Amino acid sequence: MEIRNKQNFGAGVFFAAFGGFAAVVARGYTLGTAEDIGPGYFPFWLSVLLGVLGAVLAVSSLAPRAQRTEVGRLDWKSMLWIVGAVLLFAVLLAPLGVILAMVALVLVAARGSHEFTWTGAVGSALVLGVLVYLVFVQGLHLQFPTWPTIFA
């Protein structure tokens, strides 16, 4: 068997492995039933779905009709911008609040894109900041700071 689509194969193996790992971890929580859902129910079934999706993706990359692709070299600079943005978000969440930390995340992560423009990054940051506020603060009532403590 030949791996024709190396990108899909790599992504599929990663999804399947991560889904399997997450399912094992989620089994440590009470699953409950469909009628009486426990804290591990959603993470378990979501990770199972991710694992199945990964397996399907990996197997489909072996099909004779699969598009041929190669995996290029890893772009370390882009990866560092994106990973750095996530770490920066974690550091800034408590002092700045979720909205400004999300804006910082998007602006820094956008630098990892080869199609980076400040207009697109600022627009995306503003839209995501509003969505984070509406979904997580207003909709789900999650308990983390919304704004910096000096504004509270």
Rank of each mutant, 00 (worst) to 15 (best):
M1P: 01
M1N: 01
I3L: 01
R4F: 04
K6M: 02
Q7D: 02
Q7M: 02
N8P: 01
F9V: 00
F9C: 00
F9L: 00
A11D: 01
F15G: 04
F15D: 03
A17C: 06
G20S: 08
G20D: 07
F21M: 12
V24P: 02
A26T: 08
A26R: 09
R27L: 13
G28W: 09
L31P: 04
L31K: 10
T33M: 08
T33H: 09
T33F: 11
A34L: 14
A34F: 14
D36N: 15
D36Q: 13
I37D: 06
G38F: 11
G38V: 12
P39T: 08
P39F: 05
G40T: 13
G40E: 11
Y41V: 10
F42N: 06
F42S: 09
P43W: 10
F44N: 10
F44K: 12
L46V: 12
S47C: 04
V48F: 07
L49V: 09
L49A: 15
V52A: 13
A55K: 00
A55G: 15
L57E: 02
V59T: 05
S60Y: 00
L62V: 00
L62M: 09
P64R: 06
R65K: 03
Q67V: 05
R68P: 00
T69R: 03
E70T: 07
G72A: 12
R73Y: 03
L74P: 05
D75H: 11
D75L: 03
D75Y: 02
W76A: 08
K77G: 10
W81V: 09
I82K: 04
I82S: 07
V83C: 14
V86Y: 06
L87T: 08
L87A: 14
L87W: 12
L87M: 13
L88P: 09
F89Y: 14
V91N: 06
L93V: 09
A94P: 07
L96N: 08
L96C: 13
L105G: 09
L105S: 01
V106H: 02
V106W: 04
L107M: 14
L107P: 11
V108C: 12
V108T: 14
A109H: 08
G112S: 00
H114S: 15
E115C: 04
T117R: 10
T119H: 06
A121W: 04
S124C: 05
V127W: 10
V127S: 08
V130Q: 07
L131H: 05
L131K: 07
V132A: 14
Y133M: 02
L134H: 03
L134G: 04
L134V: 15
V137E: 04
Q138Y: 06
Q143R: 13
Q143H: 08
W147H: 08
I150Y: 14
I150T: 12
